[in-house]
Design a binder for these strands. Structure first.
Lengths: 156, 156
DNA sequence: GGTAGTTGGTTTGATGTGCAAACCTAGGTG
DNA sequence: CACCTAGGTTTGCACATCAAACCAACTACC
């Protein structure tokens, strides 16, 4: 995918959402991450309609998020596995899970344990080692013709 | 929103996606986070159709993610602002941006500066201070009738 | 050896959602 | 008086989504 295909502001968030920004993709990735690799399991655990899930899995395989492996010859059967790109979605799911726990659903349905204790993740800057807070952030727009406010008009 | 409204696995990720898991919501939140508070600005910068955006903004206001403020009396004009819940979506957007930069769009369209230097965020555990890695994580399902593999059948 | 079940989908037909473009309201501007 | 701005809503059409049925190629049971 090229940055030119993005409508509106050229932005990696929009690019990411073009791949996984629909109703079922991230839930499918969640299930594969949980170890459920087969079509019927993913259908049952996400609640997605079978045709929708089939279509989304195809897109995710084409986008390199999932990999389809044949695990049986006759009749042919396939299972779905995470690629490196799919595994890299883990922070996205974790951020969504944490936000959902705190702002949508009251009681957490899943507890994440990190080496035995409950994890509450925080975003840290690897360069300086400090916790990243909103007020310390500054955004620099690298695409010509745009700034934070929107498209720059030539006669601006 | 209650956990019972979720189809498929009861999970905060699904709850979060029920609120912001559509094509435009997160892009709208991104724009408000960038300081673009007005309807036309959000329309232009996201590329969303006006009616879709109007509908999504209404949902986001009802869900407590955005707040609608009147900034002018006649004619009445409103602007959109982040609530605490909306501000808490920042890690979700950051995770998506980083994944998009690394796995979808090659050249980052936006650079995030943290106190002057470029930030590459990493997820750390606040309890033990260590970086959270996938292999150190364990998941515990708290909802009765479900485990990682799916719904638990009574007959084992 | 016939019937039912499993698995990984595809097809079907009704319904819902998404889209671009036009329109509306209420005022301001030249 | 015509046009512009801002924040939407309406319209008409296309496409996506859904649940349920169907299908193909096996396997298991009786």
């Amino acid at each position: 995918m090229s940055i030119a295909d993005i409508k509106g502001r050229p932005c990696s968030v929009a690019g990411a959402l073009a791949v996984v920004g629909d109703r079922w993709s991230l839930l499918a990735v969640r299930e594969v991450m949980f170890g459920n690799h087969r079509f019927s399991d993913i259908v049952r655990n996400t609640g997605a309609p079978r045709d929708r899930l089939a279509a989304r899995l195809k897109v995710l395989v084409e986008a390199g998020v999932l990999e389809r492996r044949q695990y049986q010859d006759s009749p042919p059967r396939w299972s779905y596995h995470l690629t490196a790109s799919g595994k890299a979605l883990s922070p996205v799911l974790e951020a969504l899970r944490q936000w959902g726990d705190e702002h949508v659903v009251r009681e957490p349905a899943l507890t994440l344990l990190h080496k035995g204790h409950e994890v509450r993740g925080a975003w840290y800057c690897e360069t300086c080692g400090e916790r990243v807070r909103g007020r310390d952030l500054e955004r620099r727009v690298n695409t010509p013709g745009w700034d934070l406010a929107g498209p720059v008009t030539p006669d601006g």
